[in-house]
Nucleic acid binder design. Structure first.
Length: 637
RNA sequence: GCCACUGUAGCUCAGCCUGGUAGAGCGGCUGAUUCGUAAUCAGCAGGUCGGGGGUUCAAGUCCCUCCAGUGGCUCCA
């Protein structure tokens, strides 16, 4: 072995160090500012501990929390800390796996159901271990030793068997705790001062339906406590934006134990969904859409034709009438197909765009219901486009543009997902391939970045899905575009072409915003209840300074309503400060205070949500200011 | 659907561990106050403690069960 080796550093410089020098020491000599900031390193591109001795020439680079890999390492080390704590607090608990996640980390245990008291114990043990500054020591062992070290934990023993032959088997020791792990890890528990448990839940192993029950502890790690505290503050703020909380406070909607998953839209909420509907239908004429309405219930035979009976029945509400089985429609497609089918069609009618905003019912599993974002009854801005093979691409491009425009209006960031053929599918694979190819081609041509999900398509068609995230970062699917060759065939749809022959149309199922319920739920969180003025249930609230100003306030309200503004007049019992405060809490976009001065001068003292102070405007100017924002569907007042 | 946790006034929560006459704040109502941009004062009303069953002299409190919600898991055109 040579006495010294050459190490190439990130800036390209090369250092010669004695063989066996720890990589962390080399990196810190190169950049002392990395002290405590470096969580691990890469050696020739592979993640290693900072304590790894260097025994050959190579390339070294530090990993910090800012690097994805460094962040993951810290999360994973925090998971070890949790596992150490839990095995001490609950003797007999068997650690299974504890990987980092997009947000933080979790560790799954084979253990009796946990209680909040267990978690308190885990917290205390973790704090103690961080204070003790225990090192993470790496042990490389052969397989028999590994099995020995696993100490009767059958899960770890199975993992050892799964390690490919030839690969090094390693353990990490933290104090008295030993865990099978490839590493690398942070140098010591001091690096985990900002580790925190976010919650625990029971899960089933491997996500299998009949898997073994496990207990999962979820957490997140930061290099320091202040960073953790900043995160927890942000998270608390995000939780306060929960649409279920806002929906109640702003009297938008509610739910009842006696109708689980079925929303009650209150007057305020109804204003919002009607405005959303108008946002979509405003373009119907120019975009060539025709609105239809088809039944909510169909005889079973319709769903047998569509394939729902075979592929979707477990999610359908079924009703018995006249000794006949009826299904509540979970989708609008069958009704649209039947309208197309109702008479002979010509190629001249295509593309035929039929829109339907009907309530849909889906028997979603009870455990999946979630406020407005996962309900059992909802309405979507749905349409079915009947097109010729040649018209497909142009229609798809138009839809993608519309999605772009719509989501930009709400200042959402959104993502695209291409979902391909599922294991249970209608029709033949060749048709699916064709449809998937077209969708992919259009996405690429539009310069859109997208994720591909194999097996996630609808049972009748591949689709492009739109996802937006709620305030806690959970993704929700909203819009979807599906290219369907199956329903037209199953319903026997035909049109007569210019060539005089009969042809089969292709159907594009599409919804832009998805369901009003889900879209609105996420939107509420997105804007913290501060809806754009055009969506605000009350756009203007007039505050008469004293009760002698009430008549003038009422007259002003009448004039504003003539400009189609939704206006409300407050009482004058409370102090002005109190009423202003209430209006802020109610997220009213525009406030007008009316006192002696305004009455005398005919001016408007306008307070605009989100702006400091108030503007003194003439009445026409004030009306123009508000109406313009509303008509343009501006995001801010 | 699975697992854990939770369910007390319209809302947010205390009381439950250790059984002994249901509490607070906000909101609501009434009265006073008439105010210049984020909480004026006083009084009053409001609860079969999620439903059902059990243990007990006695259950909001302990036990069982059902329902619903929450967090995950699985699912999700």
């Amino acid at each position: 072995m040579p006495e010294s080796v050459s190490v190439t550093l990130p800036d390209g410089s090369i250092r010669s160090v004695p063989t066996g020098t720890e990589i962390g020491k080399i990196l810190l000599a190169w950049n002392p500012e990395g002290f405590r900031r470096y969580v691990a390193a890469t050696w020739n591109g592979v993640g290693v501990d900072l304590s790894r001795p260097v025994t050959a020439d190579g390339v070294a680079a530090p990993l910090t929390f800012q690097d994805r890999a460094g962040r993951d390492i810290l999360q994973h080390s925090a998971a070890h800390l949790v596992a150490k704590a839990l095995t001490e607090v609950v003797p007999g608990a068997l650690p299974t796996a504890g990987p980092p996640t997009e947000e933080g980390f979790y560790y799954d245990f084979d253990v009796r159901p946990l209680t909040p008291a267990d978690l308190d114990g885990v917290h205390a043990a973790m704090a103690r271990d961080v204070a003790s500054n225990l090192p993470f020591d790496r042990l490389e062992v052969d397989r028999p030793e590994a099995v020995e070290l696993a100490g009767g934990n059958r899960h770890k023993q199975r993992y050892i068997e799964e390690i490919p032959p030839g690969e090094t088997v390693s353990f990490y020791r933290t104090g008295s705790f030993l865990d099978l792990c490839a590493g690398p890890h942070v140098p010591s528990t001091k690096w985990l001062a900002g580790a925190h448990i976010l919650g625990f839940s029971a899960i089933t192993a491997g996500g299998e339906k009949d898997g073994e029950p496990r207990q999962r502890i979820r957490g997140i790690g930061f290099p320091t406590k202040p960073e953790l505290e900043a995160y927890l503050k942000l998270r608390a703020a995000a939780e306060a934006r929960d649409h279920r909380v806002l929906g109640q406070k702003l009297e938008l909607f509610s739910f009842s134990d006696e109708a689980p998953g079925f929303p009650f839209w209150h007057p305020n909420g109804m204003v919002v969904i009607r405005e959303l509907e108008r946002f979509v239908t405003d373009h119907f004429l120019e975009d060539g859409y025709h609105e239809i309405r088809t039944p909510l219930l169909f005889a079973k035979s319709v769903f047998e034709t569509s394939g729902h009976w075979e592929h979707y029945r477990q999610n359908m509400f079924i009703t018995l009438a006249d000794d006949r089985e009826f299904g509540w429609k979970p989708m609008n497609c069958p009704g649209s197909m039947m309208i197309f089918q109702s008479r002979a069609r010509s190629y001249r009618e295509l593309p035929l765009r039929l829109a339907e905003f009907a309530p849909l019912h889906r028997l979603e599993p009870s455990g999946t219901l979630h406020g407005m974002t996962r309900v059992r009854e909802f309405v979507q801005d749905d349409a079915h486009l009947f097109v010729t093979e040649e018209q497909i691409e142009e229609e798809l491009v138009r839809l993608l543009k519309w999605i772009d425009r719509a989501y930009t209006t709400f200042r959402f960031t959104w993502s695209y997902e291409l979902s391909k053929r599922p294991s249970q599918f209608l029709g033949d694979a060749a048709e699916w391939d064709r449809a998937e190819t077209v969708l992919e081609k259009v996405l690429k041509a539009s310069g859109i970045e997208y994720r591909v999900s194999a097996g996630e398509g609808a049972f009748y068609a591949p689709k492009i899905d739109i996802h937006i995230r709620d305030s806690l970062g959970r993704p929700w699917q909203t819009g979807t575009i599906q290219l369907d060759y199956q329903m037209p065939a199953r319903f026997g749809l035909e049109y007569q072409g210019a060539d005089g022959h009969l042809h089969r149309p292709v159907v594009i199922h599409r919804t832009i915003l998805g369901s009003w319920e889900r879209f609105f739920g996420v939107l509420l969180e997105h804007c913290d209840g501060r809806l754009p003025p055009w969506l605000s249930p009350v756009q203007v609230r007039i505050l008469p300074l004293a009760d002698r100003h009430e008549p003038a306030a009422d007259q002003l309200a009448v004039r504003l309503r003539k400009s189609h503004l939704r206006v409300e007049r407050a009482g004058s019992d409370e102090t002005l400060s109190k009423r202003v405060r209430q209006a802020e809490i109610d997220r009213i976009p525009y406030l007008i205070v009316l006192g002696d001065q305004e009455v005398a001068n005919g001016t408007i003292a306008l307070r605009i949500r989100g702006e400091k102070g108030q503007k003194l405007l003439s009445e026409p100017d004030a009306i123009a200011r508000m109406s313009t924002a509303v008509e343009q569907r501006a995001f801010d007042p």
